[in-house]
């Protein structure tokens, strides 16, 4: 896990850009076993773009709940922890059989310390709740099946 040294300091990068500025070159790529740095001309300035080696590629941190991606459903608008009720011990926002409209709040997702409401998004009846309370979900995970046939 340990690496002997940080690639380059912010001052190093500024210096590379300054060197590039005095040349006709458009960009400079530095590729090592551990990282790739591209400093490129971009209009009247420069950009720096870092990529770290294959081993360094961060693993996905959200273990998505696998659900069928078909049929009308209420999806997670963003990744986070899904809660069915407004507070621990409180009754759930909705139960199967509940009639909902587009703006009905059916759950909340806690992301980055913020509580975000999940709206039903359409008229219909909650057919099934597919995700347990307090489960980490990925963006787009189907949380509930919505029966949207005419009531």
């Amino acid at each position: 896990m340990s690496t002997p040294d940080l690639p380059l300091s912010p001052e190093d990068v500024a210096e590379i850009a300054a060197i590039l500025d005095g040349t006709a070159y458009q960009r400079l790529d530095v590729t090592t076993a551990r990282f790739r740095l591209r400093v490129a001309r971009d209009g009247d300035g420069f950009t720096q773009e870092w990529t770290f080696g294959e081993d360094a590629a961060p693993a996905a941190t959200v273990e998505a709940v696998a659900t069928a991606d078909t049929g009308p459903g209420i999806r997670a608008p963003l990744p986070g922890t899904f809660y069915r009720a407004p507070a621990p011990g409180a009754p759930p926002f909705v139960e199967p059989g509940a009639t909902v409209g587009p703006d009905t709040v059916v759950g909340i997702i806690e992301t980055m310390k913020l509580m975000n409401p999940v709206h039903a998004g359409a008229h219909g009846t909650i057919a099934e709740v597919l995700v347990d309370n307090a489960t980490m979900v990925a963006k787009g995970t189907v949380l509930m099946r919505l029966d949207d046939t005419a009531p």
């Binding site: 990068v13 500024a14 720096q48 990744p79």
Partner: peptide
Amino acid sequence: PGRVTRAAWPAG
């Protein structure tokens, strides 16, 4: 949140 597919930061 999510994966940053590309991050080009200014330099200079």
